[in-house]
Design a binder for these strands. Structure first.
Lengths: 342, 342
DNA sequence: TTGAAAGCGGTACCAT
DNA sequence: ATGGTACCGCTTTCAA
């Protein structure tokens, strides 16, 4: 059933029916009720494409996720993030369009997204330290919010990010406070902004304690189990293995643990481990248990906040860029030494 | 730049330009080249909404993912699955629309998706053993492919699924072959079809070996770390703990391991563990290492296959439902006993 | 081989 | 308070 048919059925004009349904004030209340009733009865839902054509708004938001041929993995946090966003979009009547776009085709894809006119705004995932997408999208004039930042760019754009630097500084400090001196970092790919900031935090904590980062304890790559496994094996085979490890992902931490198993070492006794993005809250306060300690960021609410930010940006294009920084939580599942300084 | 402007610019009619760009044969070759050249030059991309309105096709596919208020989690395999699908869609010129829809609002949301006209077909995720969505969508007359099946329904619909029953039968058999007699299962929510089938496989292996499933060793719930932790703790506190555990998810397995840690037990020595959806291929053949053994399904390619199936269905609505079953791989990272029979 | 014009299903301006 | 009508941008008959 479309508008025309509904209007004929009611003996009204399309105009009046449209107005009644869209809450315009100049419709008599009785008429509005009659129209709404009929619409409900016939399961009338306006055609989104026609509506979009007429209004110039697509009522949908795009999430662009970079994938590279080389790094096959799609970060699982996207799922969480998108869940948060989705709730906001649904409530506001927006659809969510996902675009996985490959390294090479970036700009053309964005241009298309814009020209095809099926998104009103974009969320940009996975920014690098210098990310050409940002200037490009700004030029294109489409509202967008970046999930993360591009540290080495000066442009002012809207973003939402967690405090990666702080989280990793605290995690590292926690281990230093426990007495560790040889602390490894198994990080994501450091061209990615988040990984770069994490390493900065790690380094800051070491330097603050008068320690020099040892390159032999620094690893970065795609955050797979395999990375953790290989890194840990390599370090265990070297002359001076670390006594503690900080990893960027729980997945990597699992690999680390397999390497420890293989060497007959016990996590929490022989080697301490802090992993990011693990939710150990169910273990909190079980202080005697040799488990991971973790930092965790509420990715899902990041998604919701980013979505809200973007919708505001779309509603009020005049307003300037918005920024939002969120803190990660340090979850101590095991504490064999002094608690970390907050 | 829109079609009208491009046509004026070229001194041609919209009709001719449209035909030239869409490969209609009745355009003179010289004209076509001139048009294509100009289109490229001006970055002309047809407006998708207008095109959709005119053709009646949205050129986009919806993925509907059920979320319930109670089970907050969104299964991380969606991310992988969608990645696979996305590649297929992109190549075929389709967009991907994600709809997370809440338990209550299911039918209304599908009806809307259909009526709003912004998807040409749907992939349905997370089917239950009896899933009302299937009959409903069939009635609605929109092409759809189910990722998974609904065991207790008789309707014939298109689906793609992994052989959950077989995977869990083999995993359980593997443990039986190692000599285990008390084998626990920590499963997903068994109203979900996949979890139900997994339990059937587990049970089949036990019965085949003349073993009776012990209800005290059966757990099901949302596949969180916490589930694995609580289940394992509870079993360890009981009179006759299991000597082996099969879990439906690597996340759950991590929780199991924490419970073992807490009890001072060693995985692979005191308790064996097989987890599903873990990729231990990097450990394959390291037979002496006490690690997880796993079954793994290539979720990403499931996504691609489902997408292809759906596009075929859309292209040829007359053809009947299609089905595709995929086998999971049993990855043996540790083998302290005889290998499982395949 | 090309063009004019009628939709596709709405919205919104201008009348009445 | 309601209706007529000109778009929105593209496709597709029908004519020339």
């Amino acid at each position: 059933m479309n508008l025309k048919q509904l209007a004929e059925h009611l003996g009204l004009s399309q105009t009046t029916v449209s107005r009644a349904l869209n809450g315009y004030p100049e419709v008599r209340e009785a008429t509005r009720l009659r129209v709404q009733e009929a619409a409900r009865l016939h399961n009338y839902t306006p055609n989104a494409r026609a509506k979009g054509l007429a209004t110039g708004r697509a009522m949908s938001i795009g999430h662009v996720i970079p994938v590279s041929k080389k790094h096959e993995m799609v970060n699982p946090v996207f799922a969480d993030f998108i869940t948060g966003s989705s709730e906001v979009y649904t409530r506001a009547g927006y659809d969510l369009v996902i675009s996985l776009v490959e390294d090479g085709a970036q700009e053309q894809r964005y241009r298309d997204l814009r020209a095809k006119g099926n998104v009103d705004g974009l969320i940009v995932h996975g920014p690098q330290r210098v990310d050409s997408r940002i200037d490009f999208l700004a030029d294109l004039g489409i509202p967008f919010v970046v999930h993360g930042r591009a540290s080495d760019m000066t442009a002012d754009y809207s973003w939402i990010d967690m405090n990666n630097r702080r989280a990793f500084r605290r995690a590292t400090q926690f281990l230093i406070d426990l007495g560790h001196r040889r602390i490894a970092l198994i990080n994501g790919i450091e061209a990615m902004d988040f990984a770069y900031r994490r390493r900065e935090g790690y380094r800051a904590a070491l330097e603050n304690a008068g320690l020099t980062p040892d390159p032999a304890l620094l690893f970065s790559g795609e955050m797979t189990e395999e990375l953790g496994y290989n890194a840990m094996r390599q370090m265990l085979a070297a002359p001076a293995p670390p006594t503690a490890v900080v990893t960027s992902s729980i997945v990597t931490a699992i690999g680390v643990r397999h390497a420890l198993d293989e060497a007959g070492l016990v996590m929490g006794r022989d080697v301490s481990l802090v992993s990011h993005d693990d939710d150990l809250s169910y273990l909190r306060n079980r202080a005697a248990v040799p488990v991971f300690t973790a930092t965790r960021s509420p990715v899902r609410s990041h998604g919701a906040l980013a979505a809200e930010m973007l919708l505001e940006l779309i509603a009020d294009p005049g307003s300037g860029p918005r920024h939002r920084m969120l803190e990660a939580e340090l979850i101590i599942g095991r504490s064999t030494g002094p608690a970390p300084q907050s």
